[in-house]
């Protein structure tokens, strides 16, 4: 009986963590889906938003309710500027274009994480919000995890609705599926790419400001978070939303159970192992072509 309860707890906690990971990866997924750019600075966006939330908490005792809108707006702007100033200057479709955009975000990641190091120092920091435990029958969960995962699933659902049900979402999907086709139908694909990158960055900002209540961050955590997010979207099939949801839940459960059974340091190695196995065995993702943006 106790065994069963443990497994149930692991499963539910895993699903919740999956939601959090999905939130942390959805910006990356959107940007890759539309622009075919892997934003290696994605994790650093999350970290900076988290550290910003820490500062806001330190200054005004303000929680995620303030930090999330501030970080979202800030990164909407930052994302737009990065696209205009840097990425728009490199043709993705040109030979080595993909590589060059990758290198740009690689350089960007180094710049952002080191600026964060100068501002916030290298200690792990967190926002002490939602610290109680929530009881569900005989099981109990940290409130921070519950809140984060609920918001995460809500946001993922909202993005899905936006992509499939609204006019601007349809334009974005059209650009994702064939940029040339979309352009020849008269869409301003440059603006759609700008919008996409800004939105993806904003999603990273929102994710960072929220998840800092759950995951302590320091200036250099970004690289790991990028790998984690990329693992998730690669497992789901790059740019595939349904696949990402499935992959998030799978990864959450694997991570939670491996840290329960093997210990925390082994769990962080597991993610890299899964990452490489996914790349080798199933580069097209769990669902392949189905469920693509």
């Amino acid at each position: 009986m106790l065994q069963l309860q443990t497994y149930l707890l692991l499963l539910l906690t895993g699903i919740m963590w999956g939601g959090v990971y999905l939130l942390m990866a959805s910006g990356l997924n959107l940007i890759y889906g539309v622009m075919k750019v892997v934003n290696l600075a994605h994790g650093d966006f999350i970290v900076v938003a988290g550290l910003l939330a820490v500062s806001l908490y330190g200054a005004f005792r303000a929680g995620p309710a303030l930090a999330i809108p501030v970080a979202t707006l800030l990164f909407l702007l930052v994302g737009g500027l990065i696209y205009r100033g840097l990425l728009a200057r490199v043709e993705t479709t040109a030979p080595q274009g993909e590589l060059r955009t990758l290198l740009i975000t690689f350089g960007l990641s180094s710049i952002i994480s080191n600026i964060a190091l100068l501002i916030w120092g290298g200690q792990y920091q967190s926002v002490p919000f939602f610290q109680s435990a929530v009881h569900l029958g005989a099981l109990f969960f940290p409130e921070s995890l519950l809140v984060s995962s609920l918001l995460a699933f809500a946001l993922a659902f909202a993005v899905q609705l936006w992509l499939t049900r609204t006019r601007s979402g349809r334009l974005v999907r059209a650009t994702a599926q064939s940029e040339l086709g979309a352009a020849s139908c008269g869409l301003n694909t440059g603006r759609i790419r700008l919008l996409t990158f800004a939105l993806g960055a904003a999603m990273a900002g929102a994710a960072g400001a929220l998840t800092v209540v759950l995951i302590p961050v320091q200036a250099a955590s970004g690289g790991f978070m990028t790998v984690q997010a990329f693992t998730l979207i690669a497992l789901g099939g790059l740019g595939n939303y349904l696949g990402a949801l499935l992959a998030a839940i799978l990864l959450g459960v694997i991570e939670v159970s491996s840290s329960y059974f093997l210990g925390a340091s082994a769990a962080s190695a597991v993610i890299y192992v899964i990452f490489i196995l996914v790349l080798i065995v199933r580069p097209q993702g769990l669902l392949g072509q189905r469920g693509r943006i």
Binding site: L86, G107, I111
Partner: peptide, 10 residues
């Protein structure tokens, strides 16, 4: 160094 990468690539 990161900024130099940007300059070199772009």
């Amino acid at each position: 160094l990161g900024a130099l990468i940007l300059i070199a690539v772009i």
